[in-house]
Amino acid sequence: MIGRSILGALVNLTKPGMYVHWGFIQISVANLIVIGLMALTFILAIAIPFHRKGGRS
């Protein structure tokens, strides 16, 4: 009612949800993105070099 325009969302996610079906697997696009980002973040956290002051050459 009130407020969505003031401090509410810029992107309206309160629309019918998008879902991916694959056999018995049914997952919302939002959850899929979150899980995908988790896997990606994990891989990047290991792959990206960690430089710090006084570190070995």
């Binding site: 407020g3 969505r4 401090l7 509410g8 969302a9 979150v34 988790m38 973040t41 994990f42 956290a45």
Partner: peptide, 28 residues
């Protein structure tokens, strides 16, 4: 309240990020 809704949004997204980071921490 629009301010209340905003604080609620922060509460929700901090929970999503909390689990996001905790699970990566657990994998690591």
């Amino acid at each position: 309240s629009s301010l209340g809704l905003f604080v609620n949004s922060m509460h929700l997204w901090s929970v999503e990020l909390f689990f996001f980071c905790m699970v990566i921490h657990l994998w690591g």
